[in-house]
Each structure stands twice: as C-alpha cells, then as structure tokens.
Design a protein around this nucleic acid. Structure first.
Length: 608
RNA sequence: CGGGGAGUAGCGCAGCUUGGUUAGCGCGCCUGCUUUGGGAGCAGGAGGUCGCGGGUUCAAAUCCCGCCUCCCCGACCA
C-alpha cells in the first residue's frame, strides 16, 4: 500500500459515521467515496483541441478542468491524486531533515527589489498595487522570503544546517502555457530551501535532495533522468534537472549512452568534427546573388556547410545597478554546420537577455544582413566559437549585398573580442567526456535542484556568527518539484487506449468497486458489505453505486484507471463471489467474499 | 509579441461562401415504458444574449469594424 497504512478511518464517503470524533487529524484523507456523491462527470468526448493523451484522459475522467489559459481546477479524483503525491513529497523531504512551512503567495515588491529580481525578471512576474498603492507581486518562487526569514531567525552557527520546505501555489505569467498542466501558469510546487554554514554543507543537502528526488519519482511511478542544467536567473554554482523523457517535452537533453553524460542542451558540450589543417589561401570576392542563408550559400558555391562561417546578430540588454538599460551589440560567429547556443552565449555575457538585432542596428555596425561576416565591421562585439577559429579558409559574407568572400581566416582577416564554446551540442556529436556519439531526447522538467550559494543571503543580510565570532553569509540551496506537472507526466506515462492506468501510489483510490444494477439490486447488499469491509481496512475505495448500464460503468472504470476493479453482480455471485480484475490485466477472476480483503491486499502489493 | 486556427445548448459539431420561416444534429440531461456484463431502444421534454460591442440593412449566427477568450507553431520558459 505504498506507505499509506493508516489506523483510523477518518472522513467517510458516507459522511455519517463520525459522530464523536472531534480530534480528527488535519490531513485525514477521504478513504472511501461513493460515485453517486462524487463531483465531476466523465466525458465521452474530450474537449476540442487537446493534444496529449494524458491530459485528455485527466479531463475525460473528471480529474481536472481548465478554467483559463494555464489555470486548472482539481476535481475530487484529481485532488486525491495530488494529495497522494504531496504525501510522498512530505515523507521524503521529512526523511532528509526537512520541516514544512507555508509561505505567502503575495509579496511586497520591496522583497524582490532587494534581491534584484524585480528589475531582472520581465512580465512573467506579475506586479500589482494594493489598495494603498503599495507595489506587490505574486510569488513565482520563494527564495526571497526564505532568505529574509533566515536573516531574522538564524544568528548562530549552532542553528545550521536547516531545511525548510512547503507545498504551495505559484504564479508565473508564462508567455505561452501549453500541453495542459505540463506548462501551466498557476501551479502547485514543492519547494525546499537548504541553509548551510558553507559549501560543504550545501553539497551534503544537495546530494540528499538528489537521492530523495529519485526515491520520490520512483514511488510515483515516473522514470526520470537527472541532467546537468543551466542556472538561469537563479544564479549559483550548480544545478540538476530531473527529466521525464517524452516528445511532449520542451527541453532538449544531450545524453551519452556509454559514459552516462547527461546535460540539458542549454549547457551541453560536445566534440564536433575538427577541420583538417590546410594552407591558408588568399581572400577572394565572389558574387553570390540571393544567397542569404548558409543552405543557399553552400548550394550555390557547392561547398560543405562546415566550410562556411555563420553570423548571428544579437542585442544583449543589461540593466545597470541604477536601473538604466545598457545595450551591447553582439556579433556571434559560428561554423556554418553548427548552431549557436543562446543560453551559453547569455551566460558568457553575465546572464543578459538576448534578442535579435534590428536591421537598423545591424547596419549601424557596418554589417549587411544575409551577407555578413566579422570582416570590416565598424562596431559591435565579435564573439567567436572555438571551432570557427580553428577552421581554415571559410566562406564568409562580404558585408555587401550579393557578395561573399572565399578563404577567410580567423586571426588573419578578423579578430574576435572573445573566443568560447557557444555552439549547441547535437545528435551524433562526440561526447566531450568519452568521445562516443551523443544522442538527444526531449524531456519535461519535473524537478530541479540548485546550488544558490550566498547570493540571496548577501541580498538580505542573512548571516550567522561562526565559533570565532565572525559573521558569515548563509549558504543556500533551492529545490523544486512541480506537483501538477508531475501528475500530468504520470498520466502521460500510465495510460492505454481506454484511459488512465495509474500506479497504486498515485491513484485516487486503489480499488474501484462496481455493483451492477445499482445498490438496490440483489447484489447490492453484498456490494455494500464489501464496501464497508474494504473501507474498514483503510484501503481506499471508489464505489460505483450509480446503477448505470454495465457498459457505462466499465468504460468509466477504465477511464478513471484505478489499479484494481471489483465487480459485484448476480453473475459474479452465482460464480461464487466477487470479480476481481487488475486494470493492467485482460482477465478477471472470482474471489470468495471471505478471502476478498487478503486477495485485494495481495493484488495491490503485486501492483507495486 | 509574430504567424495560423477557432468561439453556435453541459460536451462534440453543422449552418456562415450566396443575409430572409420557429437556429439544427450527435452525445449528455429530465419524464415514462422496455432493456441490463463493455458507452441500450422507443416515446415525450427541457435547455441558446449564435463570445462581447458597434456598424451596414426592411432584415444579421451569416456582411463590415473594434475588442475579448481559447487552441496550435515560433519567440519565451526559476
């Protein structure tokens, strides 16, 4: 039973059997419910325009409903599944020393101004004024709150390490929500924050999360891979993302099957085919009408794309300390057979926001779009990839409409301000660790872990006194798991053509009890007794007492996807008891009423 | 923000090009009878500001303008 053993029965679906229980636990879950009391219908047809099967089934089975773009309601079945995930999260976070808190969803803007993110983050952070015109924000994460709390609560090395976590709603006004709950704007997240004396302490808690996350995802029945990740606007010294591999995913992962190298493509390195050394030839102008792309150029001149240089014009917009925008015009140069990796470039530029240059900006630095090269520019900063530097005799633009240059050479014909690895790793590239061919996969980020360092502590003055009486900044880590996204991925992983097929640990209830012809039928009496029996054991049960036609009841059971289905009917009773069928099995068998509970237990254990 | 698509009953859709009875169909819902192990049958019924606002016209779901919302692709995505 997935670690959910329980002593008393708590809230009942019947709503009538707890007259004297004034001291029920706060987190009691509904362990049994009648379908006749459930809220939310199953849908024969899915609402239009639903792309992924998992999301379609969550809607059709009555787990969730969409309220607006990236905004969802959880109906009883969906909420029950969410609570099971949350329970797993609580158990595993507690197991590594976490203590649960609940932090506000509305923050004063000052908090975010203090960390600098108010200025740095764009429209994704929702800002508003309260009735007295004070600037407020909707929390998209809680590093600021934790750091400011820590500044007040922590004063001595004796109070460290600490780990706080919460399961809380976040709001991120994503420019483009999509794929159902995989990318929502409002979503529930488990976020934890580690507070440590030093980097070594951070490493310990980081490692503990790494291990705990695998336990969590395993218990949820979701296969994941951990990949090295970009630190993005969090800053910090290290990060991993936990990825569920699926074509629905929006991240591209670079994986090596032989040595286990695994990185998000944003940060992945690789070995590209190096150019053969050859004699440097003299530059030569060549007319290339209409050849404005590498493809067209390579075709026109009949050369490999690897014999060309590609230019990407980007504007980097910084904000200085006093809030004034600072514009840098970047001319990125890569070899024609490679793609610029903007995340690498952005990191190189200190986390700048990048946008394509305007045509005016391109002309202003003396370049000609479509026929560009770093040769003859009058402005801009040239940043070149290592590979383009070591590749001789490349075709490059002449910065003149309709003309290119043959046999240009870096160092001789142009010099970059910076040389760095700024290209994207690709399918088939050599692994930068072991040299074997890399492959790429799409993945959904269901969890992440970040080493933040002292950045937030510095911003909020969160320090402690060490044994020698010196004030030192608290070293922080930040760790997230999207709960709704996790449920969406589980639904994606566990379904067949009929509906969901959820793991015991996640299913709203492990048992789906169906009585044919309703609770008033001849079989009804037995069904009611079985319902009470299972409920008394503490095993969760959904009781379909609706008296719908059998076909409807079975179809709904398959759609809702609970692991074990029990059917009580005249036929089953005649055959000697109750029909038991696993959702993932084709056949059913009859179990005598007296053996039912132990059989159910055994089957559920076998499902794990 | 750029490109594409769509808003008509709870859900899925037709009608719109070429304006004109009372706006249709399937599923679902309600009533009755029959039926009952894989989304029943018959009969009767309820349910609509045709996304919103303006305009053209004797007349607008249909034509024109503006706006809103949702979906898909891209930009974006701690």
């Amino acid at each position: 039973m997935a670690g959910r053993a329980r002593g008393n029965s708590g809230v009942h679906g019947d709503g009538a059997r707890h007259p004297s229980s004034f001291c029920q636990q706060v987190h009691e879950e509904a362990v049994a419910v009648r379908m006749s009391r459930l809220f939310g219908e199953t849908l024969r047809e899915a609402p239009a325009g639903i792309e992924s099967p998992g999301h379609q089934f969550l809607l059709r089975a009555g787990y969730v409903r969409q309220l607006g773009q990236g905004i969802f309601s959880y109906l009883p079945l969906g909420w029950q599944a969410m609570m099971h995930i949350e329970q797993i999260l609580r158990e595993e976070l507690t197991a590594i020393g976490g203590v649960e808190v609940s932090l506000p969803v509305v923050h004063p803007a000052e908090l975010w101004q203090q960390s600098g993110r108010y200025q740095k983050i764009g429209a994704e952070l929702t800002r508003f004024q309260d009735r007295r015109d004070r600037d407020m924000v909707l929390a998209m994460t809680h590093e600021e709150v934790v750091a400011s709390l820590a500044a007040g609560e922590i004063s001595s090395y004796r109070q460290l390490p600490r780990l706080v976590f919460q399961i809380q709603i976040k709001w991120r006004d994503d420019p483009r929500p999509r794929a159902g709950m995989i990318r929502a704007r409002e979503f529930t997240m488990k976020d934890s924050y580690s507070l440590d004396l030093d980097e070594a302490g951070l490493d310990t808690q980081y490692r503990a999360h790494y291990e705990a996350y695998f336990k969590i995802f395993t218990r949820c029945g979701l296969p994941v891979v951990a990949v090295g990740a970009d630190v993005g606007i969090m800053g910090g010294s290290g990060a991993h993302e936990f990825m569920y591999l699926t074509p629905l995913g929006e991240d591209t992962l670079v994986l090596c099957d032989s040595c286990g190298y695994a990185q998000n493509r944003q940060v992945a390195t690789s070995r590209k085919a190096a150019a053969e050394p050859e004699e440097l030839r003299e530059v030569c102008r060549v007319e290339t009408p209409h050849a404005t792309t590498i493809e067209e150029l390579a075709a026109l001149l009949e050369v490999a794309r690897a014999r060309t240089a590609k230019i990407v014009f980007l504007a980097a917009e910084h904000r200085s300390e006093d809030g004034h925008p600072v514009l840098r015009l970047i001319v990125a140069v890569v070899r024609g057979d490679t793609d610029l990796n903007e995340a690498k470039l952005a990191n190189l530029l200190g986390g700048a926001e990048l946008r394509p240059m305007t045509l005016d900006e391109i002309s202003a630095i003396g370049a000609t779009a479509g026929f560009a090269s770093p040769i003859g520019l009058t402005g801009g900063e040239v940043i070149a990839d290592e590979l383009v530097m070591s590749s001789p005799n490349l075709v490059a633009g002449a910065n003149e409409e309709g003309w290119h240059l043959l046999d240009t050479n870096a160092g001789r014909d142009w010099r970059p301000e910076v040389v760095a690895d700024i290209v994207a790793a690709d399918d088939g590239d050599g692994c930068s660790v072991c040299g074997s061919p890399l492959r790429t996969e799409r993945g959904v980020e269901v969890g992440n872990i970040f080493k933040l360092g002292t950045r937030f502590a510095d911003a909020f003055g969160a320090t402690y006194l060490d044994p020698d009486g010196n004030a030192k900044p608290i070293v922080m880590g930040s760790y997230g798991i999207g709960v709704g996204r996790l449920l969406a991925c589980i639904a994606e992983e566990h379904h067949d053509e009929r509906g969901l097929r959820l793991p015991v640990s996640i299913a709203p209830y492990p048992v789906h009890l169906t009585v044919l012809r309703g609770a008033d039928s001849a079989a009804g009496e037995v069904a009611e007794r079985v319902y009470g029996l299972i409920e008394a054991t503490g095993i969760g049960v959904l009781f379909d007492d609706r008296g719908e036609r059998p076909g409807v009841q079975f179809a709904d059971a398959d759609l809702i996807g609970l692991p074990l289905r029990l059917t009580v009917s005249e036929r089953s009773l005649k055959a000697g008891g109750i029909e038991l069928k696993r959702r993932d099995a084709a056949e059913a068998r009859i179990v005598a009423e007296g053996a039912l509970v132990s059989e159910v237990r055994a089957e559920l254990d076998a499902c794990e």
